[in-house]
Design a protein around this nucleic acid. Structure first.
Lengths: 170, 170
DNA sequence: AAAATTAAGTCAATAGTGCTGACTTAAATC
DNA sequence: GATTTAAGTCAGCACTATTGACTTAATTTT
């Protein structure tokens, strides 16, 4: 008993409590939920030798066809050098094509090909189904509470970027 | 016009629609919400030269003090080799200590130190506040809808792991 | 008691994703 | 004509994670 007391001195034996971190249960749930949410797509991506970076790039190009390289770098918040490899692989695989800007010929406007569209739909479908099922099972199908909550989780200054993505204009 | 039509053949100009992917708006919101959610902790971690892997390991050791190395590997779903470096750095930094199992002396039971507890609280506080604020702003404070939704986003077979984390027994 | 299994740790090699810095090319703008 | 901008490239580095092979010590099985 004495030896045990010595060996455990300085350590903390009590788990974190809700009194210390009120949202501890939700922190954990979000961690596991996001992991499973992304795992759906990860499995499909690995068949193509792609990773999450490819998914994100392909996703936004499909969401806003005709976006420039600079647009994509901005929305992904990564560097030009980081994007280049991923973009090259997507172009080489025939999922994305670059077209010289008509107004500004320095720009390379990014468009999905038919296969790029098909791939992004294949990646998005299980994610959409998972959200849909979770909403139904939680009795949230009819309202916008999930969207409201997620919006409020995002930094206020970034919410403008989202509004732009949902808008009709390129 | 003819040149343009040729140049854009095979590409897709239309964005993804909700008729193709019903939950497209929520997919996007979840992506940005999770990014901002983790960014809070990332900033703090970088001050210590730590990454997300350290956060996750430290988190679960604080959540279930006395867990074994095997427990942690299982819950993080990573390999022993991946964990080893991260765990070593956390031990060297004095945030985690290993104590030989009393029943099974092959086991190394993991406990946070006082500094480990303080660090995990510092990392968790902004995440807890963000969730709390988002719930209040969405009018969800009073009920368990967020938790319900997140639970339903997790693969059914993994929900048992969560129940174990929340239980009183080690 | 010997053999097999288990928990943990280690060494080596590899992959994916991201970073910084420095530089080039071509086009647009001042 | 000079400067700035958009995109691309080269080189090197860091972090996180992987697989495979192996060691050590302790426990369990036979």
């Amino acid at each position: 008993m004495k030896a045990d007391a010595d060996a455990t001195s300085q350590i903390v034996v009590e788990p974190i409590t809700e009194s210390e971190i009120p949202q501890i249960a939700n922190i954990e749930l979000i961690f596991f939920a996001y992991r499973d949410f992304t795992a759906d797509a990860d499995r499909i991506l690995s068949r193509f030798g792609f990773g999450r970076a490819h998914h994100r790039a392909l996703y936004f190009v499909n969401r806003k066809p005709g976006m420039t390289v600079a647009d994509l770098i901005s929305i992904l918040a990564i560097t030009k050098q980081s994007l280049s490899r991923v973009l090259r692989q997507l172009i080489d695989a025939g999922h994305i094509r670059q077209i010289e800007g008509r107004e500004d010929r320095r720009q390379r406007r990014l468009f999905p090909t038919q296969s790029g569209r098909e791939l992004v739909l294949e990646l998005s479908r299980p994610q959409s189904r998972r959200i849909d099922a979770a909403m139904r099972e939680s009795g949230l199908s009819a309202d916008t509470l999930v969207a409201d909550f997620m919006k409020n989780m995002i930094n206020p200054q970034e919410r403008a970027v989202l509004a732009n993505l949902s808008s009709k204009e390129g």
